[in-house]
Computed example of a mutant assay.
Amino acid sequence: MNSKRIKHMVVFNLHVGKDTPEAEQFLRGSANELAAIPGVEQFEVFRQVSAKTDYDFGFSMVFADQEAYDGYNVHPVHTHYVAERWVKEVCRFQEIDLTIFE
C-alpha cells in the first residue's frame, strides 16, 4: 500500500473574538510556530466568510504521509503550542483529517 498524503484542517473560534489585535496576534504566532514544524507542508490560515457556519478561522496543512502527521502530533513545539496557546485561547473547534485523492 502506498502512503497517502494527509490534509489536516481545523476551524475554530477564539475567546478574544475575531476582529481584535489579539486574534491577529494568535493567527500570526500560530502560523510562525506550526508551519516551522518538520513535516508540515502548505500551512494556510483562513478567515471565515460564509454565513453557513459560525466558526471564525481555519488552519490547513498537508503531510506527506501518516508518519509525518504522527511526528507533527508528538513534536515538542506542537505539544507546547497546544498546552500553552490552543487550550487557553481557543473556545471551540472542529478538526478533520483527510487523505488526499490522487
Rank of each mutant, 00 (worst) to 15 (best):
F63H: 11
I6Q: 09
A23C: 12
F43M: 10
F43T: 11
M61V: 05
Q66Y: 15
N73Q: 15
N2T: 15
F63R: 07
Q25D: 14
K88C: 08
E102S: 13
D56K: 03
D97Q: 10
G29Y: 02
Y72W: 04
D56G: 14
L34F: 03
E102L: 08
E67P: 03
I37M: 07
D70A: 09
P76Y: 08
H78E: 03
F101Y: 12
F12D: 01
V11K: 09
P21C: 07
I96W: 09
V82D: 00
T53K: 12
L14D: 07
G39I: 01
T99N: 05
A23N: 07
E33G: 07
F57R: 05
E41V: 08
F57K: 08
R28M: 13
V77D: 12
R47M: 10
T20K: 04
V11S: 10
K88F: 12
R92N: 15
G39M: 08
Y72F: 14
F93P: 00
M1W: 04
Y81E: 00
H78C: 05
F43W: 07
F101M: 09
G39V: 02
M1I: 14
R47P: 06
G29N: 13
H75T: 00
Q25C: 09
T99A: 10
H75Y: 01
C91H: 09
G71F: 02
R28H: 12
G39E: 02
H8E: 04
S30F: 13
F93R: 07
T53E: 05
M9W: 06
A36G: 14
Q48W: 02
H8D: 12
P76F: 02
D56L: 03
Q42E: 15
F46N: 12
M9K: 03
F101H: 07
V74F: 10
N32W: 12
L27A: 02
R85K: 15
E102R: 14
M1C: 06
L27F: 07
L27M: 08
Q94P: 00
N73W: 03
R47F: 04
E95R: 13
A51M: 11
M61Y: 01
E84C: 00
R5P: 10
G29T: 01
Q66E: 14
S30T: 10
H78M: 06
N73L: 15
D54G: 03
I96M: 10
E33I: 15
V87A: 03
H78S: 00
I37C: 06
V74I: 14
A68D: 01
V40M: 01
A31P: 00
N73G: 07
L98A: 10
V90L: 02
T99D: 07
N13Q: 04
G17C: 01
D65F: 05
T53A: 09
V10S: 05
Y72A: 05
R85L: 10
K88M: 01
I37V: 13
L34R: 01
A64G: 11
Y55A: 06
V62E: 11
A31G: 03
K88A: 13
L14E: 06
H15P: 04
I100L: 15
A23I: 06
I37P: 01
A36S: 14
Q25M: 08
F59Q: 03
F59P: 05
G39L: 08
V10H: 02
R28S: 13
H8A: 05
F26D: 00
R28D: 14
L14Y: 07
V11Y: 13
H15C: 08
K4D: 13
G17W: 05
A36T: 04
F63A: 00
E24F: 04
G17E: 01
K52G: 07
D70W: 02
C91D: 11
H8N: 08
